[in-house]
């Protein structure tokens, strides 16, 4: 049996996400038969304080609205496979667009760590980032690292450990939309919750319903059917 915790790495393309993945897992990874960039989902493992972690390097995407095959893969993993922690990798030199993706992840799942990568390159350019302020405003840990030079790793690993051991709790601060949308969400949300108790975040599903995300609906239909089958077998144990 595999009792390792699962950590998914999400992020924009070109944020050094694969570099971080490589730096954290070393050569303990199984990829495809191509040594270049991430083409499918790569996995690797990591040990820290006696705990085993499986790292999943999701495809780099600009958003998680499933506009492309890669986005669908990344979204499905975060929402349906429910990793223990989702690590969102940001490019410190391009925070605005990168935060956009982070905010989307915060709507999808609770245990999130925001990892601001390439911090040395940004600081060299004179960019200064106040991670404490971001932590407060986002409600989840924000950590500055440089995957290239392995800066900030102790803090990152420590935070992972503290989330797993529940020494700290993540409470993502939701993005508030205008009144009209919020009202629609509040009408849909209870129904979503009732429909699929252990399903993905009901607020997020409501938003996607309003968005008209047909692909997600199809995926949910498929998964809900599967879950019901599991339910009947779960009674056995």
């Amino acid at each position: 049996m595999n009792n390792a915790y699962r950590i998914a790495l999400a992020g924009n393309p070109n944020t050094g996400k694969s570099t971080l993945f490589n730096a954290l897992t070393g050569l303990r990874q199984h990829t495809g038969n191509w040594a270049g960039k991430t083409v499918s989902v790569a996995q690797g493992s990591l040990q820290h304080k006696g705990n085993h972690y499986d790292l999943i390097d999701l495809p780099g995407t600009y958003s998680l609205f499933s506009n492309s095959a890669d986005e669908t893969v990344a979204r499905n993993y975060i929402v349906f496979e429910k990793p223990d922690i989702t690590l969102v990798v940001l490019d410190a030199t391009s925070m605005e667009r990168n935060l956009n993706l982070a905010l989307q992840v915060l709507e999808m799942t609770k245990n999130v760590i925001i990892c601001i990568n390439l911090i040395d390159a940004a600081e060299k350019q004179g960019i200064k980032i106040n991670e404490h302020l971001l932590t407060r405003q986002l409600g989840v840990p924000v950590i500055k690292v440089s995957a290239r030079n392995k800066l900030g790793f102790p803090k990152l690993l420590d935070t992972i450990d503290r989330i797993i051991t529940r020494a700290i709790e993540c409470n993502p601060v939701p993005t508030i939309y205008d009144e009209e949308i919020e009202e629609k969400i509040s009408r849909l949300e209870p129904k979503v919750k009732e429909l699929w108790k252990d399903g993905p975040s009901s607020r997020w599903v409501s938003l996607r319903l309003l968005d008209g995300d047909e692909d997600l609906m199809r995926e949910m239909e498929k998964r809900m059917g599967r879950e019901e089958n599991d339910e009947s077998s779960r009674v056995m144990d």
């Binding site: 600009y62 958003s63 609205f65 506009n67 605005e96 667009r97 956009n100």
Partner: peptide, 11 residues
């Protein structure tokens, strides 16, 4: 459609 979404995603 998708192109609109993509452009919005990119900023």
């Amino acid at each position: 459609g998708v192109m609109r979404r993509r452009l919005l995603d990119l900023g």
